[in-house]
Design a protein around this nucleic acid. Structure first.
Length: 817
RNA sequence: GCGAGCGUGGUGAAAUUGGUAGACACGCCAGAUUUAGGUUCUGGUGCCGCAAGGUUUAAGAGUUCGAGUCUCUUCGCUCGCACCA
């Protein structure tokens, strides 16, 4: 540990002993302090009832072969800054790190090279760990976890079984999004513009048996519970949008011997229905096929639709379709017979896969009606339906008992009528679909289920967890969509846990969103082998107080993990409804020309190079100074140099510190101003301006001949979150025997930060005409009097009548003439 | 199309939330020191003008004693969702 200044030598001699002729040598300083932190376990935390806890969380990385990207440290440094400050303010801070280690790249690498994913992943984790340590984050490395560790995924599997037991995990044959390139099924959330989020290949539909998790059962709660959370608005609105709640009604139309049920948000427009449309996949199309007059035409259209990808189906908004000739539907509101069509503009997965068409008040129906020459009946007054559908609100017309009503009354009356006559009911629908949870891949958690011919799907007994990944001869998935685990030989077959008959294991694995759905809980108690985490640990550490991560996870990981946590809450396994109190998001870091950094463009900045050339402290400080935290930022080597110069200046300032110097009032003013600004700006994540406050203060200190120790040690404390190594080093050089991270965060004093003379702007009719210096908090009259003495003011008001003078204390004086 | 947001010097950006626009930094210019230079230090730097001064926050209008900030219109950009009935 540090030698402490014991007063046996003069401070000047002590300072001399630090070889002041040396330039700022970040390499030795950073290595030295990283070793000390490691050795002293400076960042290890345990629950401590005497202290308030603070749980800071950043999204753990996927340990890719490419190593750490400059984007990762933006988020990590931000919460490192917050964590360090909170710790110095007396909180017991948990700031953990781990690895989201299951995933496709490791598997693709294995296919190419034959190296087992476990081997390459372990090597990558080692690299990442070194890189993260070289940046000096205050992670508690004793709590490091990895989702591919059997001791970890044991509990992921255990939780899956809970989902199964509660009926929320079920197997279903559905048309899924199939990526023909990755040969894997994707969740809706993983499909971007009809393409695979990962590889960009066009996604096709494929019917497959899949494990599903019923996230839709939580749709309402996932929306409503957002109200009490401190999430940035962008995140809230994107989640609300994605879940896509709409209120309306289901209505039953007569069709053949059946009821044809539709969902509509406007049941009050039912008198304007002139036709109906089914999705080509709708069950009635096949059921009644024998009764249609134009079967060949219908079959051809159904086939053509099946061949289309989702992208083709949605990109082309021209309306096509075929009438189901031979059967008419009957509108239950007025008994009218109406034609029924199939068309691909009706989606099979939303609502009931069928709609009632109101062409007068829905542009899509209007377009379709124009193509097929169908009648258009206006039922809401307004607009010009000769040109286009009228989609706004107006009083009902041509609608029997609804005539004259507004939307609200009309809705209520229409639903009441439908309920009374037994052909309808109010209904809420969501865009959100159940979570497709199967992946036809090797490097993921095995789904702990077996299939028995007598007993159906059965979970394996808890005692057999973790169900470890078996060795396989070959990691290739195949075109039929069979997982590599189907080649796992003996592993495949086992006994049915219920009847003991021969049973076959599930060969699909979990998506890599599984492990990350609950990792924040494991951090609370990472070595527990009896439970996923003890109740005591969870009660002390949860909730996460502040979670920072990328916007790209808003409708994926963030939504999934909120859902997962709510499920655990319902099972009585956690005691809070939501896992995260606060969610913020960082902007991406782009290359110098504004392009995305990518290997193929060759413009990737490697953090290791920056650390080697300028040091971790400069790198961290630069990432905080680069621009507003929540916005995209462009990397700039020149700006980085500016920050490096600043760090060097702070180092050199030590040479001007003298033990017996007493700070002046002006010095204290600068210091307290800096404390107040930095403290506030860190809390608001305005890191860029927090750094500029530090720069202003340092510029001030540079102007002094001799610096009082108090002024310098305060600077060091304020810089600890940003440049922890330098702060520790200089703190030690000031003669302190403890770590600066264990020092107290300085208290800013507003009164001491107040200037005694203020400059007031003098305006005439709102135009700036000059400034005057007056004592702080000068009276209105004094300010006015001083303002009148300005040459420029006297000239401007000469011969004019002064109508009003507005004085804002310490700010402005506006003379109205 | 719908939803969210943005537009300020040569560049990255500030602006106490309606009160001196351009803090802080990069770059540039000039000077000093120096190993020839990259280093370091000092001063200058929105635009027009020698200056006094004028002018300036995408464009236009409005509210106000006062607008980068609030309201409306137009233009431009970014992100998310997208035939969701």
């Amino acid at each position: 540990m540090n030698k402490k200044y014991d007063g046996k030598e003069t401070f000047a001699q002590w300072q001399e002993s630090w070889k002041l002729e040396d330039r700022y040598n970040f390499k030795t300083i950073e290595k030295k302090w990283q070793a000390i932190w490691d050795e002293e376990k400076a960042y290890h935390v345990e629950p401590d009832e005497k202290k308030d806890k603070f749980y800071a969380l950043v999204e753990f990385p996927y340990p890719s072969g490419a190593g750490l990207h400059v984007g990762h440290p933006r988020s990590y440094t931000a919460l490192d800054v917050i964590s360090r400050k909170k710790r110095m303010q007396g909180f017991n801070v948990l700031y953990p790190m781990g690895f989201d280690a299951f995933g496709l790249p490791a598997e693709n690498y294995a296919i190419k090279t034959g190296v087992h994913p476990a081997v390459s992943t372990a090597a990558n984790i080692a690299t990442f760990t070194n890189q993260l340590k070289s940046l000096g984050f205050c992670f508690d490395w004793d709590r490091c976890i990895s989702t591919c560790d059997p001791e970890y995924y044991k509990w992921t599997q255990w939780m899956f079984i809970k989902f199964f037991e509660k009926g929320l995990a079920y197997k279903d044959k559905i048309a899924i999004n199939w990526c023909p390139s990755c040969k894997v099924g994707l969740a809706n959330e993983e499909v971007v513009n009809g393409c695979c989020e990962r590889c960009g290949a066009q996604v096709v539909r494929k019917d497959k048996e899949q494990w599903m998790i019923a996230i839709t059962k939580y749709a309402d709660r996932l929306i409503n519970d957002l109200d009490d959370l401190d999430f940035i608005d962008r995140v809230k609105s994107q989640q609300v949008n994605w879940i896509g709640r709409s209120e309306g009604a289901e209505l039953d139309f007569k069709f053949g011997d059946d009821k044809l049920t539709v969902f509509t948000t406007r049941p009050d427009t039912a008198f304007g229905v002139t036709y109906m449309v089914l999705a080509p996949e709708h069950e009635f199309v096949q059921k009644y096929m024998g009764k249609f007059d134009n079967q060949a035409e219908i079959k051809a259209y159904v086939e053509a639709t099946a061949k289309k990808s989702d992208l083709q189906r949605t990109q082309d908004d021209s309306k096509t379709g075929v009438e189901l000739k031979g059967i008419k539907a009957i509108n239950p509101f007025n008994g009218k017979e109406i034609p029924v069509f199939i068309s691909d503009y009706v989606l099979t997965g939303y609502g009931t896969g069928a709609i009632m068409a109101v062409p007068a008040h829905d542009q899509r129906d209007y377009d379709f009606a124009k193509v097929f020459n169908l009648p258009i009946i206006q039922v809401l007054d307004g607009g010009n339906i000769a040109e286009k559908a009228f989609e706004e609100d107006g009083p009902h017309i041509n609608s029997s008992f609804l005539d004259g009503m507004n939307k609200e009354d009309g809705m209520k009356a229409a639903i009441d009528y439908a309920v009374e006559k037994g052909f309808g009911r109010s209904k809420v629908n969501f865009k959100l679909r159940d979570w497709v949870f199967s992946r036809q891949r090797y490097w993921g958690e095995p789904i702990p289920m077996v299939y028995c011919e007598h007993c159906g799907w059965q979970p394996i007994p808890e005692a057999e967890l973790p169900l470890k990944l078996p060795e396989v001869p070959d990691y290739h998935p195949n075109d039929e969509g069979e997982s590599p685990l189907s080649k796992a030989g003996d592993w495949l077959y086992t006994k049915c846990p219920k009847c003991g008959a021969k049973a076959r294991r599930e060969t699909d694995t979990m998506p890599n969103w599984a492990g990350s759905s609950w990792y924040f809980l494991r951090y609370c108690d990472p070595h527990n082998d009896k439970e996923f985490a003890s109740k005591e640990a969870l009660d002390y550490w949860m909730n996460v107080d502040w979670y920072n991560g990328g916007m790209e996870h808003t409708t994926l990981h963030l939504l999934y993990s909120r859902f997962w946590h709510k499920f655990l809450y319902d099972c009585g396994l956690v005691s809070t409804k939501e896992p995260y109190n606060k969610r913020t998001s960082h902007g991406m870091i782009l290359a110098e020309n504004g392009e995305k950094m990518s290997k193929s463009r060759g413009n990737v900045i490697n953090p290791d190079d920056i650390v080697a050339a300028y040091g971790a402290d400069t790198f961290r400080l630069y990432e905080m100074f680069i621009g507003p935290f929540d916005q995209v930022a462009m990397w700039s080597d020149e700006s980085l140099m500016g920050v490096y110069r600043f760090v060097g200046k702070v180092y050199n300032l030590f040479k001007k510190v003298y033990k017996d110097i007493v700070p002046s009032d002006k010095d204290l003013r600068a210091m307290h101003k800096c404390i107040l600004e930095v403290t506030e700006r860190i809390d608001q994540m305005k890191f860029n301006t927090a750094v500029s406050s530090l720069m202003t203060y340092v510029n001030y200190l540079s102007g002094l001949d001799k610096i009082a120790p108090e002024l310098y040690s305060t600077l060091l404390k304020l810089m600890t979150p940003f440049t922890p190594h330098l702060a520790e080093e200089m703190w030690a050089r000031l003669g302190n025997g403890n770590l600066i991270i264990d020092a107290e965060w300085p208290q800013g004093d507003k009164a001491l930060a107040q200037d005694d003379v203020v400059t007031i702007a003098v305006q005439i009719c709102g135009k700036m005409r000059g400034t005057v210096e007056v004592p702080a908090n000068a009276s209105k009259e004094d300010v006015e009097k001083a303002a009148m003495t300005l040459d420029n003011v006297m000239r401007q008001i000469e011969g004019k009548e002064i109508r009003k003078v507005i004085v804002v204390p310490n700010k402005i004086c506006n003379i109205v003439v």
